[in-house]
Design a protein around this nucleic acid. Structure first.
Lengths: 221, 221
DNA sequence: GGTGAAGCTGAAATGAAGCTGAAAAAAGGA
DNA sequence: TCCTTTTTTCAGCTTCATTTCAGCTTCACC
């Protein structure tokens, strides 16, 4: 999962980056409204965290521009003054969620999870596909036979991305984009290696190879 | 699908070719405005990606020449300076879409898909013709009897091209042009081989042979 | 009806894409 | 720092999408 953080307060950025990374997200930061709006249209993000008080272009403006352009990126708005009025404005502009400062990182993480799940399925704590349960807090997966496996960070991120995008061909380069930062080496076979590990845990049938195209994680099979 | 990329930046060309190819497009490159304008009139392209800053002839000029000649080729314009003014100019010259540099490849791909669909038929995730459904996410086709078949990359591209051009005679060389690069061997029978495979999946009647001319994919029969 | 080109077909060759197990490298913790 | 865990690389191997091929059939034209 790749998250866009649009925020100008360096201190806040620093304090958010680590926990977000720990939760298995790749984070890109935009420090002003114009850059933020641009990046948010890139179509590689799964979610944006948008501060309202930004230099160059106001957060609400950024948000409503996205929506005008039919960009459906899930957005969590951050604001210093959490007034009733502001909140209404935020949602009117198309925010999916709203969080007043100061806030606890845990709350933000929880809202992120909720928001990412919302577009896929009914809200719930775990990601479920068929008889597969992924506990996102503990990064543990429970398979059909009731066995649990702790996942390494990369295994977890890959599986989560699959679970949030079932029944769709995901090319290796798309997977790389969502798992790693931009500087990643394109012609390595890391993805293949991790697919193999996931298959060992989940069973071979679950992830189908489409030669020359990518992989499909099958919701049911 | 065959895409004309008019771009002089070798590095950008290199970074675009692979993902475009992965997405199932054949890509030809013109490195200056004059060559680009010429190729764009060849009537074999389904879409052009046109940079504005080109040697020999400016991109906007190329575009407006095409339009003057009543060439309706869908065009996505790339520009280094993404200003309001430039955007307006681009659309006035007949661009179908506009993308400022730098951009992420996935956005370009999304816009290509959107544009191809827009220019040919109503938007939708699946291409439908008669009782035939082509799921582009999964590259699966569902036939009249409700059976689904997974397609290989070439089968998919060929079928998609047929579905986007139903009830039209498509010559073998035109099909070859859209599936392969120019240097492809002209007197091979690959197309015949793939027609056979498609017929096996879809039924014989669906694709009619016009001896000496090509094939017709029939919308209904 | 005979002829030749165009198209069809099933099987086989090919080569790139993907898989795999192990080992090297890097990251993380004590 | 050293040790453990995780990540990445590598080289050989396997698989299968693609292409080729050779023989066959069909069709248009005479």
């Amino acid at each position: 999962m790749r998250i866009l953080l649009v925020e100008d307060d360096r201190e806040l950025i620093a304090s958010l980056k680590k926990p977000l990374k720990e939760a298995g997200y790749v984070v890109d930061v935009a420090e002003d409204g114009i850059e933020g709006e641009y990046l948010g249209n890139e179509d590689i993000y799964d979610l944006a965290i948008l501060d309202l008080g930004l230099p160059k272009r106001n957060g609400l403006e950024v948000l409503s521009n996205w929506r005008k352009a039919d960009n459906k990126l899930p957005v969590i708005v951050l604001t210093a003054r959490d007034t009733w009025q502001e909140r209404v404005d935020g949602f009117k502009s198309g925010a999916d969620d709203y969080l007043g400062k100061p806030f606890h990182v845990e709350e933000l993480l929880a809202r992120i999870t909720a928001l990412l799940h919302r577009s896929i399925q009914s809200p719930g704590k775990s990601l479920i596909s068929g008889d597969l349960i992924l506990d996102e807090d503990r990064q543990i997966v429970t398979t059909e036979d009731g066995q649990t496996h702790t996942l390494t960070s990369t295994e977890f991120r890959l599986l989560r991305y699959f679970l949030l995008n079932t029944d769709t061909i995901l090319s290796k380069s798309r997977l790389t984009d969502h798992l790693y930062n931009f500087d990643s080496d394109k012609d390595s076979n890391v993805i293949e290696a991790y697919i193999k590990r996931l298959r060992k845990i989940l069973g071979k049938e679950r992830i189908e190879t489409r030669r020359g195209q990518g992989y499909i994680f099958k919701e049911s099979w």
